[in-house]
């Protein structure tokens, strides 16, 4: 029996902006963790990581991060990844501000 695999998302930083991005099912990059594709087997996760790493004109530092299924898409497991979904805790900067601004426009 194969050892159990913790589901993963592929995450990286945008090459130009540095912002945290996640690989979606369509192979595009999203700013939102909930839009990430959740890989539930090791082979497909590794294959996705390899193809993500090859997109070196778009992203930098791609890696696999543990995640779990949630009502609004994948959710981070570790606190570091949770912080990456929103930005720093001392200022409303980064994703949390960008997302709030986007919601205001919508």
């Amino acid at each position: 029996m194969s050892r159990s695999f913790t589901p993963k998302v592929v995450t990286a930083n945008d090459l130009r902006l540095g912002d945290v991005v996640y690989l979606t099912q369509s192979g595009k990059w999203s700013r939102l963790h909930g839009e990430a594709h959740l890989f539930t087997d090791e082979d497909s996760a590794n294959a996705a990581l390899a193809s993500a790493a090859a997109q070196s004109l778009v992203v930098v530092g791609a890696y696999l991060a543990d995640a779990k299924a949630g009502p609004h898409g994948p959710e981070p497991v570790h606190f570091r990844e949770l912080f990456r979904t929103r930005g720093p805790s001392n200022y409303a900067h980064g994703k949390q501000a960008d997302l709030a601004a986007a919601q205001k426009v919508a």
């Binding site: 912002d19 930005g87 980064g94």
Partner: peptide, 25 residues
């Protein structure tokens, strides 16, 4: 940015100039 340098090649060059990639930026 135009792909002539890979990240592996670029990383030591940006670090020599004080540019890190951190958590959010």
């Amino acid at each position: 940015l135009d792909g002539s340098l890979t990240e592996e090649e670029f990383r030591p060059l940006r670090l020599m100039n004080g540019l890190y990639l951190q958590l959010h930026a």
